[in-house]
Simulated scan of single mutants.
Amino acid sequence: MTLWLGKAPLMLASQSKARQALLADAGIEFESDPADIDERAIQASSGLSAPGDIAGLLAREKSRTVSDRRPGRYVVGADQTLTLGSRIFNKPAGRAQAADQLRALSGHCHELHAAVAVVRDGRLMFEHVSFARMTVRRLGDAEIDNYLEKAGDAVTSSVGAYQLEGLGIHLFERIEGDHFTILGLPLLELLAFLRSEHLLGI
């Protein structure tokens, strides 16, 4: 049962299964059109260093890129950054890099910044950035290896090599923050904006 009142489905500029599931579970009719931008190049050329600013920039760029080819549509872009102190993490390129990231995060508290932006016909209509703090329990090499073996290729699809909605939950001893922020889409704030545009039935 959809709650979406728009003439055309919401457009999600992402192939993230977690973000797609959040929208589907909220009863929002949507289509997915990944932006496929060079995130690292955009980040490097921006000169930005604050994780929230970087996430916001990339969310805007994703939504604008898809908006250019989807006239008239509400396009949602989202991005997430992970920082441990001054170090910014990206999605691991493979299992070895995933293991390195987990060893670095072990026993420490890191921050996730999640940004969402909505663009229509090239105009930024809404943006929001939120953050959460995540404390990883102390992990031995055997535990990391076992986790990576069980989680499989999924570890390379998310920053930090974990997915909280899956086996990644076993890595943590403390979580402070909004569940949707952790999954990479500040959903409550997005829903409030969509309601303000009279696009939702509730």
Results as ranks from 00 to 15, higher is better:
1 M>L: 12
8 A>M: 10
11 M>Q: 09
11 M>L: 15
12 L>G: 02
13 A>H: 06
13 A>K: 02
16 S>D: 01
23 L>K: 05
24 A>W: 06
25 D>P: 00
30 F>T: 05
34 P>M: 09
40 R>M: 11
42 I>T: 02
43 Q>P: 00
44 A>R: 13
46 S>M: 13
46 S>N: 12
47 G>E: 07
48 L>V: 11
48 L>P: 05
55 A>Y: 09
57 L>N: 03
58 L>E: 03
59 A>V: 12
63 S>I: 07
64 R>F: 11
64 R>Q: 15
65 T>Y: 08
66 V>C: 04
68 D>Q: 14
68 D>E: 15
68 D>S: 15
71 P>A: 08
72 G>N: 06
77 G>I: 08
78 A>D: 02
82 L>K: 03
83 T>F: 07
84 L>F: 04
84 L>H: 04
86 S>F: 09
95 R>T: 14
98 A>C: 06
99 A>R: 03
102 L>S: 04
102 L>M: 10
102 L>N: 03
105 L>Y: 03
105 L>Q: 02
117 A>E: 10
122 G>T: 10
122 G>S: 08
127 E>G: 01
129 V>S: 05
130 S>M: 10
131 F>K: 15
131 F>G: 06
133 R>T: 09
136 V>L: 09
138 R>M: 08
141 D>Q: 14
142 A>R: 14
142 A>K: 13
143 E>F: 04
145 D>R: 07
146 N>P: 00
147 Y>I: 07
149 E>H: 15
151 A>R: 01
157 S>H: 13
158 S>I: 00
164 L>E: 02
165 E>S: 13
165 E>L: 12
166 G>A: 14
172 F>A: 04
173 E>N: 12
173 E>T: 08
178 D>A: 12
181 T>P: 01
181 T>W: 07
185 L>S: 01
186 P>G: 03
196 S>C: 11
198 H>C: 10
198 H>P: 00
198 H>R: 13
